[in-house]
Design a protein around this nucleic acid. Sequence first.
DNA 1: GACTGGTGGTATACACAGTAGACTGACGCA
DNA 2: TGCGTCAGTCTACTGTGTATACCACCAGTC
Lengths: 212, 212
Amino acid sequence: MRKLKDSRRPEILDAALAVAAERGLDGVSMRAVAQHLDLTPMALYGYFRSKDELLDAVLGRLLAEIPPPPADLGWREVVEHLANGLRAVAVRHPSALPLLFTRPAVSPAGVRIVDMVYQALLTAGVPKAEVPRLERMLSTFVIGHVSSETNGRFGTGSLDSLARRAQLPPEQLPGLQALADQLGAPVDWTQEFRIDLRDLCDLVEHLVSSAA
Amino acid sequence: MRKLKDSRRPEILDAALAVAAERGLDGVSMRAVAQHLDLTPMALYGYFRSKDELLDAVLGRLLAEIPPPPADLGWREVVEHLANGLRAVAVRHPSALPLLFTRPAVSPAGVRIVDMVYQALLTAGVPKAEVPRLERMLSTFVIGHVSSETNGRFGTGSLDSLARRAQLPPEQLPGLQALADQLGAPVDWTQEFRIDLRDLCDLVEHLVSSAA
DNA sequence: GACTGGTGGTATACACAGTAGACTGACGCA
DNA sequence: TGCGTCAGTCTACTGTGTATACCACCAGTC
């Protein structure tokens, strides 16, 4: 296993993000990244053993962009800070975001974030045995929401939802029919994200108080 | 835009799933699927306009595998039925699962499922204006959990979590340290999924009662 | 019987992907 | 002077999605 250089690794990750922004994640090829740096593709293999490893590093870079929360925050604020931090990253790098759900976050930055959530839940009074589960639930929601938002699972507006309905006879979709007027309205995703998060923190608090 | 044949579409989707099971989702190439059917790759283009369209159809097939809930279930049971149905699909086709989060579910089967959740929430007494949000929250969790479980975001066991910790000095990870004994234990994902879902349904009920 | 149109494929070819392997040139140090 | 390491190049192989062109068959219909 040959040793890898690391001098220009950050530069390469930036190039990969730039390419992703310009041509989408599928456009991130070794050739494209190399070209962005005026290099040959094979030069990258001195820094990353494979394309997969490069993409893992890109994900690590994304997570590292989340600023650490100030020390004096309460547990809810910590959770919100981290969640909003991830969402801000998503806004900055929407096209790179699918990485979040397609590969495990094994980078140091990822571990650090999980640890902060653990601490937050512990100070909230969650029993030790429940902490890992609730961390998984929260992170699943946050990553899932942010990812759905940017990759289109939540639909790209009313036009889309109308088109989907048209595939089936309306009488087979009573729920959609009953909600016809709600579904046309545009959604403020930032607000929805905040409310969902508040609800989930309420849930945590509820579990704490009912366990006591 | 040429018209597509549909006679052998199901057969092709089965072949794609079989290839995914054998060689992983990345192994699903037009050539591999064709070979599985003793065809040339180009024969598939009579049935699907592109590989993307084929994969969308595979996702539709997965969702169509979820059995419709019996008519006499309460709203919580409907939600649980659908959630467990999706999870069962995930167990049957783990390697195809990343499709769930990487492309929007625009198939009729997907629309039908969303509609059933809408109906469930309405009968639960959720105000119309809140229904779409809660559906998104629930589906985000369900898809996210199932997807995390099968694609490894939840880690592949204690060995993995130990390895992750080793990347950083332990004194930087007080949360992980405090939970050392919990984190080694194996997790019953089926149970965790059920408990999470129960908690989320409790949350829905709480919102209903506090809105009244 | 010839003509037409649709169905269900094949054959060939192109541009692009990841990456193995061998190589080149520059630089620091003995 | 010569050796080792670093940084990057060049070439080539295999595999990918898919456009274009073609062919064989079979049901009607004039």
